[in-house]
Write a protein that binds this DNA or RNA. Structure first.
Lengths: 164, 164
DNA sequence: GCCTTTTATCTTGACGTCAAGGTATTTCAA
DNA sequence: TTGAAATACCTTGACGTCAAGATAAAAGGC
């Protein structure tokens, strides 16, 4: 009898006409996502970051040398709007973690590049982040994690058709 | 090869020292949660609500007659801070969906009650919401949904120790 | 060469959230 | 009885987000 079960029991009593089966599943995904998010934010915060700024720096870092992408590419990877990305980049630039370089070939275009400070910070942060993810997933065995990943991949494929 | 796989492949190339196994799992939970959240928001929006306002009205509705709880009880159920709840209640009150009643017994306390309009709205909305949840979960068979729910419950139990 | 359309990014305004703190009230131990 | 602590709710200020639209530049049809 967890939090989600209590919610389902209330609905069952008040609206016995409803077919509640998927509600528990969706509720658990949402709550688990919230707990995992909080668990990850702690590591980000220890490095002066949050999920938003980590997301940008990590995307640049894993893109490989020269650790530079355009705002549009970053928007594609992180799935946020242009206004959100402008705001994120403004803050990261103010902290000296990225730098905006105007393109020579296209005056509309900007390249966002990790500074040395940004590179060092994200490299240290992601190392801790990965270790933290291991801790967060430890409640399940490797077999269970693999089975869960299989089911989530199948579900996710309906929203994000795989390519290649 | 989905979006998460592409991220993992980039990390693998750039940081082969990292043990990336749990990263895919956590990434898929996050992305799936985002897609499901968007899918649910559409139904809320069709009734002039969003996830936040739906959450409050649904909590009041499923609490049973007289469909009234204090802000503190609502905070416990919805897991938001007091400032957030005040803001939510202000907006719902302005729309005439809830009403605040000062307590006779404790002058600090307030009872938040569904109005007739609020009751009618949330009852209609939750009916559609449940049908929508079925659609969103349709990508998995009933067996798969049950297995997924089992694994998520186990994982979630580490964050929210079950009671009773 | 021009004019429309598309592309790339930034700006604005509204909203939801939280942390920290404020105010009023109640509780409880001395 | 009274004064400190706890409780219940609200206020404030900062932040992250989005939708809509602004600006500027490039591309393409004629």
């Amino acid at each position: 009898m967890d939090h989600v079960d209590r919610i389902l029991a209330q609905w069952q009593a008040e609206r016995p006409d409803l077919q509640l089966r998927p509600m528990g599943l969706l509720g658990r995904i949402k709550r688990l996502g919230a707990h995992l998010g909080q668990g990850m934010e702690r590591v980000f915060a220890a490095h002066g970051l949050n999920a938003a700024s980590f997301d940008v720096l990590a995307t640049l870092r894993r893109s490989g040398a020269p650790y530079a992408l355009t705002p549009s590419q970053l928007m594609d990877w992180t799935m946020v709007t242009s206004g959100t990305m402008t705001n994120r980049l403004d803050r990261l630039e103010a902290k000296g973690l990225i730098r905006r370089v105007r393109s020579d070939r296209d005056a509309r275009s900007v390249t966002v590049q990790l500074t040395d400070e940004g590179f060092a910070l994200i490299d240290a942060c992601v190392t801790e982040h990965v270790a933290n993810q291991h801790r967060l997933a430890d409640a399940l065995s490797e077999t269970e994690q693999a089975e869960l990943d299989r089911l989530l991949s199948k579900w996710l494929a309906g929203f994000e058709p795989p390519e290649d």
